[in-house]
Amino acid sequence: MNLTLNIWRQKNNTDKGGFREYKVTDVSKDMSFLEMLDVLNEQLAEKGEDPVHFDHDCREGICGMCSLYINGKPHGPLQTTTCQLHMRSFNDGETITIEPWRAKAFPVMKDLVVDRSAFDRIIQAGGYVSVNTGGVPDANEIPIPKRVADEAFDAATCIGCGACVAACKNASAMLFTSAKISQLALLPQGQVERKERAEKMVAQMDAEGFGACTNTGACEAECPKGISISNIARMNREYFSAVVSSENV
């Protein structure tokens, strides 16, 4: 396959940035999308040009490090991570446009690399059960109905990639935040701090500059792990019931 790539290049956080066109030839259908970019970078490097920087690590679809807005969709045409996208999803001669995640709370650091530390700060605001190491009960002393455990698990599979934010016209982080709130609200271990957690995490999400939810469902449609938008409904419920009965002063 021969392809034309239209790639966002930006030197650093303060540079204005813009698109540049590249040609890649002899692309195999079995390559992953990132391997196709590796080939481009190897070609650029041989010519002494600065390679295109993009985030990636595990290349198995689980670490959440890879991103890329491909032809107007986060992680490209399939509902998967970019590292699991293969070139057989594209046609010979196609032009592919590649951009970074676009959101105020995810500033671009270079080319296609963005800063997602806002997600870490949302978790730091309350995405945990406050137990220290040691001194916990035996694991089987906390029985949890399988149905509840499975539902919590579904929420817990979030990989924190940020595709939900990139897909949302409001750059809302509600799918991400709600996945963690849901997981811990469903489980008995999360009950003690349930209200405080919902309040604090939502407050942090707002402070980071993420937008609000207008229920378009774009986040769920693009989430590579299929996190359900019903988590947002649960988060709203958790949040409102927390604020009306708040113990925080």
């Binding site: 945990y128 694991a139 399988k146 698990f153």
Partner: peptide, 14 residues
């Protein structure tokens, strides 16, 4: 024990 207390959703029986 530690992981369960943290809310790690291990597989469970009915």
């Amino acid at each position: 024990d530690q992981c369960v207390a943290q809310g790690v959703p291990f597989a469970r029986e009915y």
